[in-house]
């Protein structure tokens, strides 16, 4: 049958509006000046339009980051929605940049925009990708590190969605611990 004009053309709204950020390391500038808001979107269609036209994670230069955060939350510890929170951190081996990074980052984005964590999705602030020579990192940030039921539920679902082996352990670190660490090791508050 013929569709009435406009029927079927509505975009699919997301639960949240999301902001995509890009960080490019320039040591001559302060950290915050290297962080750029790329765009915001709030429909499934606009997400793919953007994702399909930006560089894949594996093609970014070392020192660059992507971050996807709910509109109104800046991708930094200092934001009021982040400062009591923490992150589920997935650290990748160097060789996984070519084999796995793009798939894992896309899966992370789909978890966020699809609200994969059921009632605990409200605890999610965003996700960060760090492209680094020594090994890339992906993390989901949540807003309250002390909220054990939410944090552990999110961790279990996230690990399953990434398709990680049960033998692989991922850890949740409070931003407060990461910010005050005296070496490169931050203790895990939770693991799944």
């Amino acid at each position: 049958r013929k569709l009435p004009l406009g029927e079927g053309l509505e975009k699919h709204p997301l639960e949240n509006r999301w902001a995509l950020w890009f960080f490019k390391n320039d040591r001559n500038r302060v950290w915050q000046d290297n962080l750029h808001l790329v765009t915001k979107f709030e429909t499934v269609e606009d997400f793919w339009a953007i994702h399909s036209h930006i560089k894949l994670a594996s093609k970014l230069s070392s020192g660059c980051d992507y971050a996807l955060f709910k509109d109104g939350i800046e991708p930094m510890w200092e934001d009021s929605r982040n400062k009591h929170g923490g992150r589920w951190l997935v650290s990748l081996a160097k060789q996984q940049r070519q084999s796995n990074l793009d798939r894992l980052w896309l899966e992370t984005l789909l978890c966020l925009i699809g609200e994969a964590f059921e009632e605990y999705s409200e605890e999610v602030c965003g996700a960060v990708l760090n492209v680094r020579t020594k090994g890339d990192k992906i993390a989901i940030w949540t807003s309250e590190a002390e909220n054990q039921p939410a944090v552990t539920f999110i961790g279990r679902v996230y690990k399953e969605r990434l398709g990680l082996s049960p033998k692989v352990i991922i850890g949740y670190q409070a931003h407060a611990d990461t910010a005050t660490k005296s070496n490169s090791f931050t203790k895990n508050k939770f693991v799944v």
């Binding site: 639960e15 499934v44 339009a49 399909s52 925009i113 699809g114 609200e115 994969a116 999705s121």
Partner: peptide, 20 residues
């Protein structure tokens, strides 16, 4: 009602927009 989408639904839109 919360707008939740599973991965298969979301992935279904991928190649439409990759070609635009």
């Amino acid at each position: 009602e919360k707008k939740r989408y599973d991965r298969e639904f979301l992935l279904g839109f991928q190649f439409i927009f990759a070609s635009m």
